[in-house]
Design a protein around this nucleic acid. Structure first.
Lengths: 150, 150
DNA sequence: AATCAGGGTTCCCTCAGGGAACTCACGCTG
DNA sequence: CAGCGTGAGTTCCCTGAGGGAACCCTGATT
């Protein structure tokens, strides 16, 4: 996304945007998550320029979100999510849920999520890690934390 | 974010990026959420160019995420989250949680979230709306939904 | 040896973002 | 009532990132 660097702000949102905020990056991550792991697959799916895709993939690998690994003795590589990357995909799930609710219109959601644990098509919602009740943006106060010093 | 328009893809993530994905937009939304609701406050906080801030605010208002309303008889306006916008801020919460975990380092998180319901400093986690168990990106299958036709 | 395919580089061009100065409407002050 | 201050933008030019398309490289395959 960024012309300006956000990573030096004392804000986890800004820092996350440094990893994840450039144009195309969320969609690249979505593709890898969805199983499109190879350069040409992603390029064809998104219609992104090869130059930009190269940059984005390198950046994500450098950040430890993706791992680049050979899948052939020829110089062929695929990109897979690391643990860090899989957790980052939570952001994608929440974005998808919001888009499903507010932007999908008549046709309904283009993709459904089936939960392994219960087998139902469902969606993720935010709950407090402490008490288990719903915990949305309107249900919290923002306090200064230990890492607040700029 | 985008040179290319994403909104016409059959993907709720891409559509959400059309609302939310341009550079600076998530941080603008964060500021409004955090209570910096006026043009000059946001501009000073982020160091964003006034031109770009104007564009972003107009876009968010046009998308129904923010509401622009006068707070004085002089031409003075503040921006407040709509319901749609408040729900969009869930994305910010998840981004913040990820940044806290993976990017905050020694110092710890710069901002803490206190849950109104239980009064504890906590964080939000993703749970299945159906069964209530944890529901992360690795816990689901992606299925074709009704709105899948491009 | 020629071909093919995946995975990138390189090049040029255009348009969006940065920066700073300018504007405008309204209230306040002396 | 002239002048000043303030919030909220506009306008201008300049630079650099994204788009597009062509090119390259390496190691199989025929």
């Amino acid at each position: 996304m960024q012309r300006t660097q956000f990573g030096d702000m004392a804000c986890s949102i800004a820092r996350t945007l440094d990893v994840f905020g450039e144009p195309w990056t969320p969609l690249v991550l979505r593709d890898v998550w969805a199983g499109l792991t190879r350069f040409d697959q992603i390029q064809a799916d998104l219609g992104i320029s090869r130059k930009v895709l190269t940059e984005r993939l390198n950046h994500l690998v450098g950040q430890g979100v993706l791992e680049r690994r050979p899948y052939d003795r020829r110089p062929r590589y695929e990109y897979v999510l690391t643990g860090k990357g899989t957790e980052l995909a939570e952001v994608l799930m929440v974005m998808a849920a919001w888009g499903d609710k507010w932007l999908a219109g008549e046709a309904g959601p283009p993709v459904l999520h089936r939960h392994h644990a219960c087998g139902h098509v469902s969606r993720a919602e935010l709950r407090c890690a402490h008490c288990g009740e719903a915990m949305g943006p309107g249900d919290i106060d923002l306090l200064t934390g230990p890492g607040a010093a700029a």
